[in-house]
Amino acid sequence: MTDTAWEMLSNRAVATAGILYFLALLAHLVEWSTMRKVPVEVAAGATSGTTSGTTAAGGVLVDLGPTAPTAAEERDADRIALFGRLGLILTGLGVAAHFVALVGRGMAADPNRVPWGNMYEFTLSGVFLVAALYLAFYKKFALAWLSLSVTTFVVAMLMVDVIWLYGPVAPLTEALNSPWLVIHVISACIATGAFTLGGMTSVLFLLKERQLAKGKQPRGWMARVPAPARLDLVAYRMHAFAFPVWTFAVLITGPIWAHQAWSSYWNWDPKEVWAFITWVVYAAYLHARSTAGWKGRNAAILALVGTATLWFNFIGINYFSTTSQHSYAAPAPVVQVAPGSGSVGV
């Protein structure tokens, strides 16, 4: 295949993935909107996702009391199960197409390379890992209740990526041409994906907790979202997975590579500063989870602050600050000898 063919394949695969994710989103919308009509225990038998061994939604089960399901309710329960499955399968297909898109980007470049040459590709990879890690964790944490958030996020971010961040396939700038790029970016993207899922879980935690605190009986899909304690635990597990990976990415591989390329392992470059801020905020989150008066609500808020700094650093800082050596679009390091010199380098 020619490079152009690969590039076209990649573009089509992105479009396909976007459509598949969107269909998955629709399927989950049908699933969750049907749930509004069905009492929890009928649906609970159908959507396996919400019935993990430890699902604390069980508390809700008891509250509603036993009512014999009507025929209509059973039909709805079937529908819920069907669309839940459909959404999951569509997401899986979307992830497969998304992967093809990434491979295509790398193959389209001459010489072939990892698909991490510009912001479009970084974002494509970051979003890919959000979706892929969702599938990877799906069984372990019974993540059916995260499906709407994940598909919505992925569709939205892919649109942002294609519309605003798109850049044609190009060879890597020289400084990016390092084995450390591979290992640094993979780990940063994995951590980003897991942090993002953790952040979504923390949002659900806050919503659910507020409903319960107001004494409202959660209805519809909120009733299927596990109890706050379980959400807190799942969020913690995701953050606890992501945090060491992030540490590896930004405090080990990043500095090693920076030292090779720019002669100094830590330059207080804006991207580095925000990676550090993100790290500190998540360390604070981990602390907060075992600090009296901070666990629960405040810890969840800190997790969201972390998500915000993470994504601000991922995309925002590139548009916000021009000094960053991580502004991939322009040639990187700088010749600074005297007035009149500009930022051109290797």
């Binding site: 430890t54 604390a56 659910k208 907790e209 319960l212 605190a213 109890a227 706050p228 304690a229 379980r230 807190d232 635990l233 913690y236 989870r289 666990k295 629960g296 609500r297 810890a299």
Partner: peptide, 10 residues
């Protein structure tokens, strides 16, 4: 259920 953390349960 977990043993230790029950943020919402007074």
């Amino acid at each position: 259920m977990t043993a230790t953390v029950e943020p919402s349960a007074p």
